[in-house]
Design a protein around this nucleic acid. Sequence first.
DNA 1: AATCCCGATACCGCAACGGTATCTTTGCTG
DNA 2: CAGCAAAGATACCGTTGCGGTATCGGGATT
Lengths: 291, 291
Amino acid sequence: MMELRLLRYFVAIAEERHFGRAAARLHMSQPPLSRAVKQLETDLGVVLLRRSATGAELTPAGNALYMEARTLLEQAEQARARVTAAAGAVTLTIGTLADSAGETGTRLAATFRRRHPKVSIRIREADFTDPTTGLRNGLADVALTRLPFDDIGISTRVLRSDPVGVVLRADDPLAGRDTLCLADLAGRPWFQLPEGTDPVWRAYWNGATSVGERPAGPVVRTVNECTQAVLWNGMVGIAPLTHALPDGLTWAILTDMPPSLLVVAWATEHESPLVRSFAHIAVNAYRPAQT
Amino acid sequence: MMELRLLRYFVAIAEERHFGRAAARLHMSQPPLSRAVKQLETDLGVVLLRRSATGAELTPAGNALYMEARTLLEQAEQARARVTAAAGAVTLTIGTLADSAGETGTRLAATFRRRHPKVSIRIREADFTDPTTGLRNGLADVALTRLPFDDIGISTRVLRSDPVGVVLRADDPLAGRDTLCLADLAGRPWFQLPEGTDPVWRAYWNGATSVGERPAGPVVRTVNECTQAVLWNGMVGIAPLTHALPDGLTWAILTDMPPSLLVVAWATEHESPLVRSFAHIAVNAYRPAQT
DNA sequence: AATCCCGATACCGCAACGGTATCTTTGCTG
DNA sequence: CAGCAAAGATACCGTTGCGGTATCGGGATT
């Protein structure tokens, strides 16, 4: 039977395109994943992955299942939230952009939990295609994300200003330089946000994108080994990196990209005492003279 | 973790309001269901059922989970169908109204499978609130259901005409009579379709409903022990009963209810060779002089 | 008070899950 | 082209947990 557990596994494999990395991300070993995929394949009567010596590629059916599984798991999460809400439980859903906000979120959530022990917290990791991390459709109550994006109806408080940088392979001709400008990167593959995403957000990142070619693979990918930045085959990311980069990668700041602002955000019309409290905690945590 | 298996179990329990009956319906024993519910309850941190000596009632949270689980399982089914469709597999989804159509569906599906071995078949059981069993929103390709309902855009072929009857407890004063009229039943509780359902369909059944009071419990319930009729605490159903009624129940035809027509139906604009083939098989199976 | 019925619990065998070790294949490389 | 490295598949194993039978406890009914 098609169980959610198998779908969780498959999503990890599909995103990593690699059984071993997926296993690491799931904190388990690789063989059960082989079995899980085979189980799904025999259950659905369909080949999901094209295995190779370098990893695994999605077949059309695999891609379909990846999309379906994502939404299904998301719907399951929402269902869970609605059920607990129906029981009178108070929940705060924190949306986080899949970059530095991840670790930030859990840290702030811990503080929040100390102050509001009875409120249960749910963290929803959104990918780069939605800078509001679901604020607009009620999928999140409060978000840790980045400006600029179309913020009408959204209240924001700036936490930190981060220069935008680029991640390079150590063997790159440009590696070793601390700063670069966009022109240095002309002609390289780049990441590109899909159409239909927030226009302001897209324009900001396309400022970088316009110098490069269109990418060949999927549009945005989050790399979990390095939660402090969005990497993609040695492409654009966000400084500062507090964690060390994986071996063989270096970092250079792009001097002509306007800085990206880490913010706490919420839908203005859904502002609540809990949301205010969380925003307050977040702003305090980043106040310069905190002592 | 909240797995689909647990939700399937919970849905059965919620509908039967009885662990034992749910176990029978799931072809398993009762103790694992106790465990499953407890597992869900601890996982969600919520009480789902109020247990009593006569069965189990849903708490508000339980009702919420019931709704969520239904849609989630449905979505999982659709997801599965879309994935196999993406692999180029051809699927025919047969919607069945939760009464006599159930058994009819599997029987016709068997014939259909013999004729089209490569087409995979999915049977979708719909409840009484949607006489089209999802034809309109693409949830089903072809339906075994009953007239009358609002059939604009829907093509139908009549398979059989069934008088409408009422199921009575053996200790009922009216039990033993073969025929009744609606007036005989004045003042009794009755089943009632929720607002927003197909108006023609609702009006038809409200013709019966109008003589009775409003029911107290949930609006429609399907009884699985008797797949040949919709029963509800000794309320209205559809003749003929080819299967014996459970002990303690009898059956009387309502002479002043217009008959209900068993039909095969499909969305006219989505008519396809497969749909035509299925309809043809269905009509042939019910032709009087078949020999 | 005795009985009945329902859900909960205890316990058991077995299927399935995840882990370790190893194999096969494939792409790369000297 | 031989050898190596890496990735997924397979074999096997200990443990978990699922579903089954037997039984218990507690309301409701008579």
